[in-house]
Nucleic acid binder design. Structure first.
Lengths: 126, 126, 126, 126
DNA sequence: GTGGTCTAGACCACT
DNA sequence: GTGGTCTAGACCACG
């Protein structure tokens, strides 16, 4: 369910955070679902427990999960809402990226059709 | 002409590379133009010369500039072309970004109108 | 009567202790009143009996309750008095909190009016 | 300048965060000042570098500091402003604390005179 | 030299 | 069993 690219330049804990966000958005993890325990993920991915813990702590601080001592880590009911708001704040970044591509000679139509394609893929997979 | 954000998490040499690419794309630096010397940039930005050199070396290796011993660093005639190809290779990354926003509940129409807006801004500034 | 926030970072047994102290102070539990049994609270709150027991043991050790073998747990006659003394010992902590707020730019008058407001609320609810 | 209580129940990294916030508020560390390096603090306090790093990372994420790779960690210009806003958000917590003391039989006048005393101490030490 | 990431293995409190 | 904290020591990129 969760995979990690050890050779990537992106820190492992960062990859984990992104993966889990993605799983929450795609409803694989729903509100109040139990996340895999730190130790089990650590074994499964052959990654140090501390690294997993770092990712879990981040998710907890971001309000996406809540942890109960002795029980585990759970998806917060507001998780999807928070992710939605985060996405809105990323729009300027997205705009800067798009602008760079346009400046580099990529056609606006090409970008728009790419978005349409992604959107239809998305809808069909629901 | 060139500014650096010391508080950014992005490495200074990385910021420099991006800035110069941008200046090439916007024709501030044209083919065979002379880039500012390492020393002058170093003074102007209060940045270690080694850092400037690192950025220049990267640009040279990427084929965007060529250096002439004892003279300095010049914009390569193929620079814009290369940047265009680079941009094409970034399309998948752009797609992943867009996909994440769509998954987070951002509307496809919103993204497309943003692109249209950026494109018209761009055209009007030429 | 008693509620628990499972999403809180505060340990459940700690929340329980605070809740019961509060109920004693507000005279919902008076001297020699019978506290809910471990089993019933356990069911009612869907919490492990061990956790309830831990809280009860703490209250007992603090002299706020006394337990009668085979009968249950009862509010000690000195409970309110003890809580009053505990509160006095918390004054330095309160002072440190207040000091931090003052250092952060909160006005002393604002804090005092807040206290006045809370005090009048309290009196009117008696 | 910075001291840590190893026997406290409060995590070391938490104590560090509070200490540094305090030093920023009292202008011992001003905007753009250089914080002690992770390694030097680690030696000085006989605490593992990772623990220091955890505190520094937190401060950085909170916007109170910014770090420049290879140079060090610096106090953000907005630090005091942010701390002021944080304090405002802590007022409800402060109110709950005060309310508990009032419920426990502490006199409102006593709390207010404590605040006055702290405030005058504060003013005289400026 | 700096901060940032990671591993390995330990201890604690909570359930 | 769980999450959270800490130590010890390593490696990397940056300046």
């Amino acid at each position: 369910m969760i995979t990690i690219d050890l050779m990537s330049r992106k820190p492992i804990y960062d990859q984990l955070i992104e993966k889990i966000k993605q799983l929450i958005l795609s409803d694989v993890f729903s509100a109040n679902d139990h996340l895999p325990s730190v130790r089990s993920l650590s074994c499964q991915l052959s990654v140090n427990p501390n690294t997993i813990q770092k990712a879990y702590t981040h998710l907890c601080n971001a309000g996406l999960t809540y942890s109960v001592a002795g029980k585990g880590c759970f998806v917060s009911p507001q998780a999807k809402e928070i992710l939605g708001q985060d996405a809105k704040q990323e729009l300027p970044q997205f705009g800067a990226f798009a602008r760079r591509l346009l400046d580099s000679g990529i056609d606006a139509e090409q970008l728009k059709s790419l978005i349409d394609q992604l959107d239809s893929e998305r809808r069909s997979s629901l």
